[in-house]
Amino acid sequence: MGEHLVELLLLLDACRRGGARTSTAVVPYFGYARQDRRGRAGEAVGSRVVADTLASAGADRLVVVDPHTVALEAMCAMPVEMLTSVPVLADALAEETPDTAVVVAPDLGAVKLAEHHAGRLGLPVAVVRKRRLSGETVQAGEVAGEIVGRPAVVVDDMISTGGTIEAAVDVLLAHGALADVTV
């Protein structure tokens, strides 16, 4: 991820030095978006640092796909255009997903995304209640929604370690969802 960011910064600088009047940074995956606030004193706000660095390198506008948080727009000194991949992904899922399936948010942060997918697919939503124990360890125990005997489609905007997805799938299976799980 870091080397791609440096490559983008170098391209922006080259465009600026080459006389470009404007430059738009198109970032399909804004990898530092999860760092959108300080968890404790002394932590960096990575998304703000990256946004400021893009602007310093010459970006006048930023286009991102499904950022982890809409707060990214407020952190940027430049205009931000947010695109979504949900229609394309939901259309692809529609071809493979039975109408008895349920769309599952693996945590509260993914509820809006799950509802967006479910709305396009005409399916109900379930939510897994998760608690993060550490950076890599999560605990999931409850599911809100009807999942018994249904295939599940788990949607999340970002997977770093896979811990949230693994915990969600384990809980879904333990509570009666079919083993036919799509992530």
Rank of each mutant, 00 (worst) to 15 (best):
L123A: 05
D170A: 04
D36Y: 07
G58A: 04
Y29V: 05
G163R: 15
V104C: 08
L5C: 13
R120W: 11
A152D: 06
M82S: 06
L121F: 11
E73P: 07
A20V: 03
E7H: 12
G109S: 12
T69Y: 13
T182G: 13
V6M: 09
V50N: 00
R132H: 08
Q35S: 05
G46N: 11
M1K: 14
T100I: 13
I165R: 07
G46V: 12
R40A: 15
P28Y: 06
A74W: 01
E142M: 08
A41L: 05
A101Q: 04
R120I: 06
G42Y: 05
T69C: 10
A101E: 13
T22D: 14
S160H: 05
H4T: 07
D91G: 15
D52G: 10
A44P: 13
L12D: 14
D180R: 08
R37L: 00
G145R: 01
V86K: 01
A90N: 10
L93E: 13
R17D: 00
A110R: 05
R150K: 04
E43G: 05
G19V: 09
R38S: 12
G58V: 02
R40Q: 15
V65T: 14
L8P: 15
E166N: 10
V128E: 00
G31I: 11
A152P: 02
G162L: 04
E3S: 15
A140E: 00
V143S: 04
A71K: 04
V183E: 01
A51G: 02
R129N: 13
V148M: 04
P79F: 05
A126K: 03
V148D: 11
P98R: 03
A14P: 02
R120Y: 08
R150W: 01
H116W: 13
R21S: 11
V86I: 06
F30I: 01
R21Q: 08
A44R: 14
D180P: 08
Y32R: 11
A20T: 04
V138W: 00
V148S: 10
V155P: 00
E3V: 15
A105D: 11
H4K: 03
A92H: 06
E115G: 09
R34Q: 01
M75N: 06
L72P: 14
V125K: 12
V65W: 01
T161W: 02
A44E: 12
P106G: 12
D13C: 06
E136N: 08
A177D: 02
P87Q: 10
A177R: 00
T100Y: 14
R40L: 10
A126Y: 02
L172N: 01
L72W: 03
A25V: 01
A20K: 09
E96F: 07
Y29L: 04
V6T: 13
V49G: 06
R37G: 05
G19W: 03
T22S: 09
P106Y: 11
A144T: 11
T100G: 15
G149Q: 00
R129W: 07
D180W: 02
V45W: 05
G141Q: 09
G145M: 07
A77H: 11
L89Q: 08
R131M: 08
I147A: 03
L108T: 08
V138M: 12
L83Q: 09
D66I: 10
H117F: 15
R132L: 01
I159A: 13
A74V: 02
G119V: 07
T182R: 15
G122E: 14
A110S: 12
E3Q: 14
P124V: 10
K112R: 12
Q35A: 09
V128S: 03
D91L: 14
G162Q: 12
A57S: 13
